[in-house]
Each structure stands twice: as structure tokens, then as C-alpha cells.
């Protein structure tokens, strides 16, 4: 095994921290656009169907990171409103953050000479990257939902902040159990699936806010201002579903890849290790979500809560199982 390149690892850390700061600036921008943008602008700009189609892509293609700004209307003399200009700037800033973030991961990979997602810090970094990437890819096709960027960036920033402070671990070479190409397959699939499911959970939360607002617009209080500018409840619900429909098979394949790896590393494909148990629980809950959406009396709000329960289980599996419960998957890198 090659050693660790200390200066590269240090550079990766600096890039990571800078990326968080850049994302934070972008988030403030999106929030400003959301708060001061024209009400109902979105509903007029893009037909519902087109929006949905784009939302389907939310997790679908986290492969490319187009640096191109969204193709807005041709630069015509009437100056864009301030909120919109802020939004466009925010997107540019997001892309800069994304490039810094991606470079941080690539540099770390060079430093450890392996795929850099073998502990909690590295996994959180990659999952966050997938989340932002999914949003930018989505925006590339549906610029009209740009003002929702803050809702995606907030959990990503939170995740990265925790990764950089609480879960941080130095770059180290892989222990023998992790020296397998299944590390790249299994963990990549898990991070894509979980990154996508995070997007779905955000959509679901927005759906619940919008749903409540639709039922009692006058009683929604301070939230009303925010809820009024959200896409329709049906659109958010469908978007959340499409993302799960994409992520669930991926999560299934991720678990299977994990089982194949466990068979080679630990002598059995399944052993109810705490991490395996929670992967099973998460899988069952999202299976329940897919069924709930097809069952009378469970559609809509009930299904939405099932979705959020599933994401809570993912967070539990990531944080509590890694930090508190010991098991074979103890790669948190915390000691």
C-alpha cells in the first residue's frame, strides 16, 4: 500500500471548507430570490407537465456537471428584476462551489490512492456532492425551480459542516477489509441512492407545507408567504415519488452489492449486522411508501409521512449506527 500524501490531504481539506462557504453564499442568494421574487412566477413560466419531467431527472443523471448557466431568455434590453439576477448569480456560485467540492474529493482520492469514501467524513462529502449535482443537473433542464435551491443546499451544508467538524478523520490508507472493488460499487450506489432520497425528502417536506397551506390558506400564518410560492402540492408529490422510483431500485442494487461483498469479506451474504439491519429497515419503509402511494386511504399525506420516516431511518443508519452502535461496518473513522 502506498502511504498518504500529507500536503494533498491538506489541500483537499481546504477545498472542502471553501466549498461549504461558497455553498452558503449561494444559499443566501437562492433564499433572497425565493423571498423577493415575483409571486406565482414559476407557475406561469413552465407548464406543470414540463416541470415534472425535469423533476424526474432529479437523481437520474448525476454524471455530468454542466457549468453552463441556464438558458434564460435572450439578453433583451429590459433589465431582469433584481431577485432574478440574484438567483442567476447564486447558480453560478453553486457551480463554483461544486467544482471546489469535486476537486476536494479528487485530491483526497489522490492522497489516499483509493476511492475516497471509506469513512463518515468522506461518505458525507460524496453524498453532499451528489445532492448538489442532482440539483444543478435538474436546473439545467428546468431553470424555473431555481428559487428552491436553498431548500436543497441547506441540508447539504448542514451535512458537510457536520462532516468537516464532528466526523472529520485524517486521510488514511484502506484497511484490508475495504480493499475491494466492491467498495467503489457498493458505496457509490448507496451515496447516489441516499443523495437522491434526500432530494425526495425535501420535496416531500415542501409538499406537506403546501398541502397544509392549500387546506387553510388563511391559517397558515407566517409560512403562508413561503408556501404560496411553492409549486403545486400534486407536482411536489409526484416529483418526490419519481425520485424514489429512481432511487429505490438503486438502493436495492446497493444492498445486493453489499451482500456480495459481505460474502467475500465476512463469509456470509447477510448477518444482521446493525448496518445491514438498518439497510433492511430503510428498504422495507420505502417499499411501504411505494405501496402506500397505490393504496386508497394512504395516498398523499400518509404516504408523505412514510417517505419522511424512511429518510429518518437513513439518517439514523448513517449517524447513530456509525457512531453509537458498534458492528462490522465500523468505518466511521471516529475514535
Amino acid at each position: 500500500m502506498a502511504g498518504i500524501d500529507g500536503s494533498m490531504a491538506h489541500l483537499s481539506d481546504s477545498l472542502f471548507t471553501t466549498a461549504i462557504a461558497v455553498y452558503a453564499v449561494a444559499m443566501v442568494g437562492y433564499t433572497a430570490e425565493y423571498a423577493f421574487g415575483r409571486k406565482g412566477r414559476i407557475a406561469r413560466t413552465v407548464p406543470v407537465a414540463a416541470r415534472e419531467r425535469e423533476l424526474v431527472g432529479a437523481g437520474a443523471g448525476p454524471v455530468i456537471a454542466p457549468a453552463a448557466p441556464p438558458s434564460g431568455p435572450p439578453a433583451a434590453p429590459p433589465r431582469r428584476p433584481l431577485a432574478e439576477r440574484i438567483g442567476r448569480w447564486s447558480l453560478g456560485i453553486t457551480v463554483v462551489g461544486l467544482l471546489l467540492h469535486a476537486t476536494s474529493i479528487v485530491v483526497r482520492a489522490t492522497a489516499v490512492d483509493a476511492v475516497p469514501w471509506s469513512n463518515m467524513y468522506e461518505f458525507a462529502s460524496v453524498a453532499g456532492l451528489v445532492g448538489v449535482l442532482a440539483f444543478v443537473v435538474l436546473l439545467w433542464k428546468a431553470p424555473a425551480i431555481r428559487h428552491l435551491g436553498g431548500f436543497i443546499l441547506l441540508p447539504v451544508i448542514l451535512l458537510m459542516f457536520l462532516a468537516g467538524t464532528v466526523w472529520y478523520s485524517r486521510a488514511t490508507p484502506l484497511v484490508p477489509a475495504l480493499q475491494s472493488y466492491w467498495l467503489a460499487i457498493h458505496v457509490t450506489l448507496v451515496s447516489i441512492a441516499e443523495g437522491a432520497l434526500m432530494t425526495s425528502a425535501v420535496m416531500t417536506m415542501l409538499y406537506l407545507v403546501k398541502y397544509r397551506y392549500d387546506r387553510r390558506p388563511e391559517g397558515a400564518g407566517r409560512l403562508a408567504v413561503l408556501a404560496a410560492r411553492l409549486p403545486s402540492a400534486a407536482t411536489l408529490d409526484k416529483a418526490a415519488y419519481r425520485v424514489v422510483a429512481f432511487a429505490f431500485p438503486l438502493y436495492t442494487v446497493a444492498i445486493i452489492a453489499g451482500a456480495i461483498w459481505a460474502e467475500a469479506a465476512w463469509g456470509r451474504y447477510w448477518g444482521w449486522d446493525p448496518k445491514e439491519t438498518w439497510a433492511f429497515i430503510v428498504w422495507v419503509i420505502y417499499a411501504g411508501y411505494l405501496h402506500a402511494r397505490a393504496t386508497a386511504g394512504w395516498k398523499g399525506r400518509m404516504a408523505a409521512w412514510v417517505n419522511l420516516t424512511g429518510f429518518t431511518a437513513i439518517i439514523f443508519n448513517f449517524i447513530v449506527v456509525n457512531v453509537v452502535i458498534s458492528g462490522l461496518h465500523s468505518y466511521a473513522g471516529l475514535s
Partner: peptide, 17 residues
């Protein structure tokens, strides 16, 4: 079936704790 699915998820929890 849905209720059984959720029971299955809940029942697995003590197995990890």
C-alpha cells in the same frame, strides 16, 4: 400488507439496538 411491512421494519429495530 402495508401494516405487516411496517411491523417488519419496527420489529427489526431491537435487533440492531
Amino acid at each position: 400488507a402495508l401494516i405487516l411491512l411496517f411491523l417488519l421494519a419496527v420489529a427489526a429495530v431491537p435487533g440492531s439496538i
